[in-house]
Computed example of a mutant assay.
Amino acid sequence: MAAPSPFAQRLSVEQVEEGSAFAPKFGPDGLIPVVTTDADTGEVLMMGVMNEEALLKTIETAEAHYWSRSRNCLWHKGATSGLIQRVVEIRVDDDQDAIWLRVTVTGGASCHVGYRSCFYRKVPPKPLERPVPLAFTEAEKVFDPKQVYGDAPNPTKL
Rank of each mutant, 00 (worst) to 15 (best):
M1D: 13
M1V: 15
M1T: 15
P6V: 14
F7T: 09
A8Y: 09
L11S: 12
L11V: 15
L11Q: 12
L11R: 15
V13C: 07
V13K: 14
E14S: 04
E14F: 10
Q15F: 03
Q15A: 15
V16D: 02
G19S: 03
A21R: 13
G27F: 11
P28E: 15
I32W: 08
V34H: 07
V35S: 06
V35E: 07
T37S: 10
A39E: 06
A39P: 04
A39H: 09
G42S: 05
V44S: 04
V44R: 03
M46A: 03
M46L: 14
M47W: 10
G48R: 02
M50W: 06
M50D: 03
N51V: 13
E53A: 14
L55M: 10
K57D: 09
E60M: 02
E60V: 10
A62K: 13
A64W: 08
Y66Q: 00
S68V: 02
S68M: 02
S68Y: 11
S70W: 01
N72M: 05
H76G: 06
K77G: 05
G78P: 08
A79K: 13
A79I: 02
T80K: 11
T80Q: 14
L83Q: 14
L83Y: 09
R86Q: 14
E89N: 12
V92L: 03
D93I: 07
D93R: 07
D94A: 14
Q96Y: 03
Q96E: 00
D97E: 02
W100F: 12
T104A: 06
V105L: 01
T106R: 06
G107D: 00
G108M: 05
G108E: 08
A109T: 06
S110L: 02
S110V: 15
C111Y: 10
H112L: 09
H112T: 08
V113C: 13
G114H: 04
G114P: 11
Y115F: 14
R116G: 02
R116Q: 07
C118Q: 03
Y120W: 13
K122H: 01
P124D: 06
P125D: 05
P125C: 02
K126F: 13
P127T: 00
P127S: 06
R130Y: 11
P133A: 05
P133Y: 05
L134F: 09
L134V: 13
A135N: 11
F136L: 02
T137A: 03
A139Y: 01
E140C: 04
V142Y: 05
F143A: 00
D151T: 14
A152V: 15
P153T: 11
T156M: 01
K157S: 10
